[in-house]
Simulated scan of single mutants.
Amino acid sequence: MGERVLPRAERRRKTEGRILDAARRLFADAGYERTTIRAVAKAAEVDPALVMQYFGNKQELFRQAVRVTPDPAAGLSADELVEQVLGTLDVKMGELPQGTLAMMRSMLTHPEAATSAREALGRQIDRLAQSIPGDDARLRAALTVAIMLGVTVGHQLLELDELREVSREEIARVLRPSLLALTGPEVR
């Protein structure tokens, strides 16, 4: 018997995932400025036009690559969910676009930037909460997003030596138990 042909929606989701995985690797390795749509397409083994069709532009591709929002339909275990969240560390600790850094700098002092950040983080919390069990899933999702935001701010804006002088793997190793506690089975 031949291989089962995947439904179109599933093929699209897999292709989008390959593009995002490639983008995360390239943004982390080369930084935002040196990562191109063509390079992402080549790494994902797709046509550059498909990357543009799915994401529109490089800024949106970057935004999607750094979001901490797994697909709730994937039915991930707590371990898999945490690994997806930690997988964004490479990008969050790499070279960020100036627009992202400007928004982060401004979100505490300018109402428009605060509203924009709150909306973006709210969407991440909504999606993450769908993958976390329990009545307090939104709170636990918000805490997870806040931790990741704090790591990004500490590394990118405050340039904390303790975050800048260690590898992403070391940060992930230390964060993993906390994130597992937040995203795993509800504890009462």
Rank of each mutant, 00 (worst) to 15 (best):
V51G: 02
E3W: 14
L86C: 05
R8E: 15
E80V: 00
Q59F: 03
R67W: 02
A22G: 05
A49L: 09
G17P: 00
T36M: 07
V46D: 04
E33S: 12
V85S: 07
L6C: 03
A28S: 14
L26K: 06
A78F: 05
T88A: 14
Q98G: 04
R8S: 14
M104S: 01
P70E: 09
G17K: 04
M52R: 13
K92P: 00
G99W: 01
L76E: 09
Q84N: 15
A23L: 07
Q53S: 13
A44C: 04
T36S: 15
T15F: 00
R13Y: 04
E80G: 01
D29G: 08
I19N: 00
E45D: 14
A22P: 09
L76N: 02
E16Y: 01
A73H: 13
F27C: 03
R4H: 15
Q64K: 12
K58T: 03
I19R: 07
D90Y: 07
Y32E: 10
G56N: 03
R105G: 11
A43P: 04
N57P: 00
G17Y: 01
M107R: 13
A102Y: 10
A74Y: 07
E95M: 06
V68H: 10
R38C: 02
E60D: 12
F62R: 00
T88D: 02
V66Q: 08
F62E: 01
R13M: 05
G17M: 01
R11A: 15
L101E: 08
E3F: 15
K42C: 07
D71C: 03
A9F: 06
D90Q: 10
E83P: 02
R34H: 11
Q84R: 15
V46A: 01
D21W: 01
G2P: 13
M52D: 03
L108R: 13
P72R: 11
A9S: 13
L76H: 02
L61K: 00
V40E: 01
R4Y: 10
T69M: 11
T109S: 14
T69G: 13
P70S: 12
F55C: 09
A22Q: 05
G2L: 14
R63C: 00
G87D: 03
L86H: 07
E16P: 00
T35G: 09
G99R: 03
Y54P: 00
G17E: 09
E10W: 09
L50C: 10
L76I: 00
V51T: 06
S77G: 12
D21K: 06
R67V: 08
V68L: 15
R105C: 11
L86V: 08
A9Q: 13
T15L: 04
L50I: 12
E95H: 08
S77W: 12
L20V: 06
K42E: 15
L61V: 08
V51Q: 04
V66T: 10
E80R: 05
K58V: 05
T35S: 06
G99D: 10
T15G: 01
L86K: 05
R25Y: 02
G75P: 06
M93S: 11
M103A: 15
L61Q: 01
P72Y: 11
A65W: 04
D29L: 13
T15M: 02
Y54I: 06
E10K: 12
A49R: 13
